[in-house]
Nucleic acid binder design. Structure first.
Lengths: 343, 343
DNA sequence: TTGAAAGCGATACCAG
DNA sequence: CTGGTATCGCTTTCAA
């Protein structure tokens, strides 16, 4: 009983050295309560001398807050590491979180929750919020959004109220169509994955709206979206190219798809852009370097990460504020993979 | 005083429901101490019903252990995300850590420790150990290894005792040289970065040993290692190619460098492998797909991650066991970028 | 302006 | 076998 306070570890050393109580040390460090300048200086000096950093387990336990966010990937960490799009998003995330003193806990979805409903770290209270990166099936997003842990979708969106940040795919594609139309293109084909994501829907809708604005037919045949694998998408594309009224230009839902189609076309001896123009989306690293360089829609990926990070942190602060669905502007980038339509 | 135990939160609910004390609940969950099958079942039933998961802050505080590892990148998270080599390493890490119930805390080095000596989460006790991924300057590694936090270097190594796992670059390059010699190559040039890492040294040493074994001169001129940037390395290479006795084959210290050199050579109209053969190292995704496909040394990157993960976890268990420097076997992969030396 | 003491949730000793 | 209680390091009343 009498040795009670001697039991305190770290913070107690600081208190000892600066000759005051642990409460005062805590107050100084958190800038709360009142204390004289003299004690403040003494405490700070001791802190520096001991290189003291508050233990985070103690803090978390007391504050019921971990200052850590979960970064969830689908399908797995490794998968995301393969996609350079996310590298830039990470830059933004990293910077914003660092500034706010948050850390990131990593977890591939499939792995982290193999049999469990949600990854263990969520139930164990290891994180204050969640950031979703990748193409999560909406069923999984729904499962998480039932929890009351703050959650933000990066470059992805769903119909129901969940914070999210995406690029303005609608306007972007309207704009792309206008651009292509001006170059004389009249038969434009859109390529996307058969994947439920309202972020993707937006691009498709924008594309169709663009067609209408230009007075072009916007029938079913203008979009290929029945497949998930590049193999299937490519064979559908080939079929269309070999059929009647082949498109003179193809718009892919992202650069990864565009570049893969381009290399498959090259293998098959179909020349881009002479025989077929191609447009991508994202402008990820490599789109400028490939040959021919890829015309695409530039998305500010660093900003995407930044805005996303701020959104989760805001929601942590005010859990009941209205849901935010943020949309970032884009910019068309003309490169070598597009030229005027053949006569 | 009398309401003391009512204060316990989560675990207390379980105790309540299974009609026993919190100590018993804890014992059951950790399989410690003794308890009857009846209580065990009651507890487990309650746990399942309440979907109880022990709070990790409480656990960490008590156990002085977080069951979290820090994944440190150099220079930044984003940088690593750009390199597909690490994607595969991550697969191995992810799998091994998941199985052991460890989580990964992410941190780019530059960001996480901008002004501080080491990243905050280390001092805050947020991690039990550290995994280093990337080309850390040895000065930084030294700084960390002075801490008593377990630490393992993945695909990197230093002279002093720190756990590490690398591929067997020495044997690999001896073998590459033998292979090239058999194809008639006599003038072989090695390309590496001017970067202190005994993992890289190993490859260079293996290369030189290979030359000697084949009775070839192993003078200074057989290695270019004075530069860091691809620009500088390439111009040094070009100079050598245009000089007297140009090499007939180039070995790059990794696939990234090899592929970049290859595309620069192509731009300059130098044909691979007709005019110059090229060999890489790592066999990362894309090495098989590029044109010409790249002859290289295959490293089992998934295994690298796995072994690394196990090494940190072992050291956490037994901090005083001897340092382990693990070396993984490799395999030469012959592809299109190498052909027999011109007459 | 300061400090004693009460917990946050979990584990582990030790007495019953 | 079981349960009371001290303790991990920290923040935060509340009284002095």
């Amino acid at each position: 009983m009498r040795t009670k306070k001697t039991n305190q570890k770290s913070i107690f050393r600081v208190a000892e050295l600066s000759d005051c109580s642990i409460s005062t040390v805590s107050n100084v460090l958190n800038n709360k309560g009142r204390f004289s300048k003299a004690t403040r200086d003494a405490v700070l000096k001791a802190v520096k001398k001991l290189k003291y950093h508050p233990n985070s387990a103690g803090r978390s336990l007391r504050l019921q807050r971990t200052e850590t966010l979960g970064l969830l990937f689908y399908p797995s960490c490794a998968e995301i590491f393969r996609n350079p799009f996310y590298a830039e998003v990470m830059e933004g995330l990293e910077a914003a979180l660092l500034k706010a003193g948050y850390y990131l806990l990593l977890a591939g979805y499939d792995a982290a929750s193999s049999d469990a409903e949600v990854p263990g770290f969520l139930r164990q209270g290891k994180v204050d919020g969640l950031i979703f990166l990748g193409r999560f099936p909406s069923e999984i997003i729904r499962r998480f959004s039932k929890f009351d842990t703050p959650l933000v979708l990066l470059d992805s969106n769903v119909e129901w109220p969940v914070d999210s940040v995406v690029s303005d795919g609608f306007s972007a594609e309207v704009n792309v169509v206008a651009h292509l139309h001006a170059l004389g293109h009249r038969r434009i084909l859109f390529l996307a994955y058969n994947h439920e994501d309202s972020n993707i829907d937006l691009r498709v809708q924008g594309f169709l709206a663009g067609l209408r604005q230009m007075g072009l037919p916007d029938g079913k045949k203008s979009v290929i979206r029945e497949f998930m694998s590049h193999d299937d998408i490519y064979s559908a594309l080939r079929k269309r190219l070999d059929g009647p009224n082949p498109p003179t230009v193809v718009i892919a839902v992202n650069d990864t798809l565009a570049m893969d189609m381009m290399s498959r076309l090259a293998s098959d001896g179909i020349r881009v852009p002479e025989q077929l123009s191609i447009v991508g989306y994202d402008d990820h690293e490599g789109s400028a370097k490939c040959s021919p360089s890829l015309s695409t829609v530039r998305v500010n990926k660093v900003q995407l990460g930044q805005v996303g990070a701020e959104m989760v942190m805001n929601r942590i602060k005010s859990p009941d504020s209205p849901v935010v669905k943020s949309t970032l502007p884009t910019e068309f980038v003309a490169r070598g993979s597009v030229e005027a339509a053949p006569k």
